[in-house]
């Protein structure tokens, strides 16, 4: 690797990392503002203009609070829990293509940290490790509410991972690749996958809500039944990490939804504007972030609109509705693909 490549990669990695942290930080602010709007309140407006410094104030508060590790807790695992949650939240952004490519000094730099040819599987792998952060934290707290929360979280995440994987299979069958970049490139202009895979998109969206433990699937931290769920015993920045990881996950899942179903950095008429390559790429990235912000807003919109499920409803939805629908989607996609392939073959001969 040349020095220029290496510098670009390092800058890009730090940039992606910084941007995801800042977006997660301001998602907390946005969430409170959105909630306030939905409930006809004003929301945070004391720290800075329009309360814009509120996330910073919250962060400082989190760091300054006393750290408490319960006496009967397994100390090492108690610390490991939030660390894993934060680590896995930050790991997924590696395979997401944030833009097409930039040409600097006649050299092309791809705006993606790494294009693994099994990108989607990598995302699933990281998501499935994410369960451990919650499970270990909940168990190590040595508190029955924490344990119950952790068990709920893990059984929910395993159940919805299945439906999520199956909803993706139909998409992979269509595009014929597991690389997220190639999937994005297969939907130029307005040929977004959501128009050909509406059912798959719906399934994926529901499962994304369940995987990020957001309402209506936030039973692991259901305060009316479980105090605080798996993070009941946590305080200070360790609690902060759990909460923060949720917001990073929300950002990343929005980004993945946009990449898989909404064309990523593609936008109608973007390439026919006649702009230079770099400008098109930057505009594409900006538009992609626009789509991502819409989905983050959508997450919040749902949270403040829909009440949470009961646990048996959650399991029934996962196993008896989503998985059969995902299988149906696979079968329909397969039949359509076969039909199209046959048609294509006969028209050639």
């Amino acid at each position: 690797m040349e020095t220029a490549d290496l510098i670009f990669k390092i800058v890009f990695v730090l940039g992606v990392f910084g941007v995801s942290l800042v977006i997660a930080m301001y998602s907390t602010y946005a969430e409170r503002k959105v909630a306030a709007f939905f409930q006809d309140r004003i929301g945070p407006n004391r720290a800075g203009p329009f309360g814009l410094l509120q996330p910073l104030a919250d962060g400082v508060k989190m760091f300054m609070k006393e750290e408490i590790i319960p006496t009967h807790a397994d100390k090492a695992l108690f610390i490991l829990g939030p660390s894993i949650a934060m680590l896995t939240a930050c790991m997924t952004s590696v395979v997401i293509p944030w833009g097409s490519s930039l040409i600097i000094n006649g050299k092309e730099y791809v705006m993606q940290i790494t294009d693994v040819n099994i990108g989607i599987l990598y995302v699933f792998g990281v998501v499935s490790i994410g369960v451990y952060g919650i499970m270990i934290g909940g168990w190590a707290s040595n508190n029955k509410f924490s344990l119950l929360g952790a068990l709920r979280a893990s059984s929910q995440m395993i159940s919805y991972e299945l439906a999520m994987g199956m909803s993706i299979i139909a998409l992979v069958m269509m595009t014929g690749t597991l690389s997220i970049r190639e999937i994005v490139e297969s939907q130029p202009g307005a040929h977004w996958n959501v128009f050909v895979q509406p059912l798959g998109f719906l399934l994926f969206l529901i499962c994304a809500f369940a995987e990020t433990n957001r309402t209506p699937f936030d039973l692991p931290e259901c305060e009316t039944e479980l105090v605080g769920g798996y993070h009941t015993e946590y305080s200070s920045m360790k609690l902060g990490f759990y909460l923060f990881a949720e917001y990073i996950n929300m950002f990343i899942s929005s980004a993945i939804i946009v990449c898989l179903y909404f064309g990523g950095y593609n936008f109608p008429f973007l390439n026919s504007l006649g702009l230079s390559h770099n400008l098109t790429a930057i505009l594409g990235t900006v538009l992609m972030f626009g789509k991502i912000f819409f989905f983050i807003f959508f997450f919040m919109w749902v949270r403040w609109t829909i009440p949470r499920f009961r646990y048996d409803q959650l399991m029934r939805l996962g196993w008896k509705i989503l998985i059969p629908l995902a299988v149906l989607n696979i079968v329909i996609t397969a039949v359509v693909l076969l039909f199209k392939y046959d048609l294509w073959n006969t028209s050639i001969n």
């Binding site: 893990s154 059984s155 991972e161």
Partner: peptide, 20 residues
């Protein structure tokens, strides 16, 4: 990737479940 998803991600979660 499949090894991590299946073994570390699903089967071991169930192990951990039972033991917890």
């Amino acid at each position: 990737a499949v090894h991590i998803i299946v073994y570390a991600g699903a089967i071991m979660v169930l192990f951990l479940f039972v033991i917890m």
